[in-house]
């Protein structure tokens, strides 16, 4: 067994691009999935049953199917349903956003519900409107509870971006696997792939631990 680790160095630009693409996907997905999650949460909490039901169905659906299936489905089926041709990148992004916004919806809903009902009463007793109560009292307190969970979701999302490699989006996994098949340097490339993910993921995991400690709510 002869190992040639120079293959990693030779392809450093491609790998760096792949890593960057992973980060871009993570950031873009979160950027879209947070607002969408908030909308879904408010729909679920609203007075109108139809909105609440719609939101609940969306969330239950996307939380209970594997992401890789959503990726495949988006890639193969969306072009059949809509006569628009999306790039693999867009398709992958759409799949990720659908999945993560469903998780975020639950996170936000739980966060809002976790604020004691007495707080709402206290705000209403002062003569505040429901909107003012939500804005001044509930949301600031819910935000504290939501942040640690969002941090965990972020770290999961970072790992899940690897799944869009199956539709040839040029993030880290895809790039590394491509180089592997072209160079036949299997062990080196796969190990390099793992190590690069580790180098990016480890600090993020530690950061999310810090966020959890800092925003720990002790009732």
């Amino acid at each position: 067994m002869t190992l040639d680790w120079s293959i990693v160095w030779l392809n450093k630009e491609a790998l760096a691009e792949g890593a960057l693409m992973t980060i871009v996907l993570t950031v873009l997905t979160m950027g879209l999935a947070v607002p969408l999650g908030i909308v879904l949460a408010f729909m679920r909490l609203s007075k109108w049953r139809s909105l609440a039901l719609l939101s609940q169905c969306f969330v239950e659906l996307f939380r209970n199917i594997p992401l890789i299936l959503i990726v495949y489905w988006s890639f193969y089926v969306i072009p059949i349903l809509i006569p628009v041709q999306f790039s693999a990148f867009t398709t992958g992004l759409v799949a990720l956003v659908l999945c993560v916004s469903a998780y975020n919806a639950e996170t936000f809903r739980a966060g809002i519900n976790s604020v004691r009902h007495g707080q709402t009463n206290a705000g209403l007793a002062l003569g505040m409107s429901q909107f003012q109560v939500m804005k001044e009292i509930i949301l600031p307190q819910a935000a504290r509870r939501v942040l640690p969970i969002l941090a965990t979701t972020w770290v999961s999302l970072f790992k899940d971006t690897s799944l869009v490699s199956v539709i040839a989006v040029g993030e880290l996994s895809h790039v590394a696997l491509q180089i592997r098949s072209q160079s036949f340097r299997v062990l080196e490339m796969l190990t390099a792939m793992a190590v690069i993910y580790w180098m990016m993921g480890y600090p993020q995991a530690k950061l999310s631990d810090w966020v959890r400690k800092k925003f720990e709510v002790k009732e």
Binding site: G118, L126, G127, M128, R144
Partner: peptide, 19 residues
């Protein structure tokens, strides 16, 4: 809501806003 502005309420659990 407008009536509530003319009444003041004090709760058993204080319900101060912790933030």
């Amino acid at each position: 809501r407008k009536i509530r502005q003319r009444m003041g309420m004090v709760f058993q659990n204080f319900e101060l806003f912790p933030h």
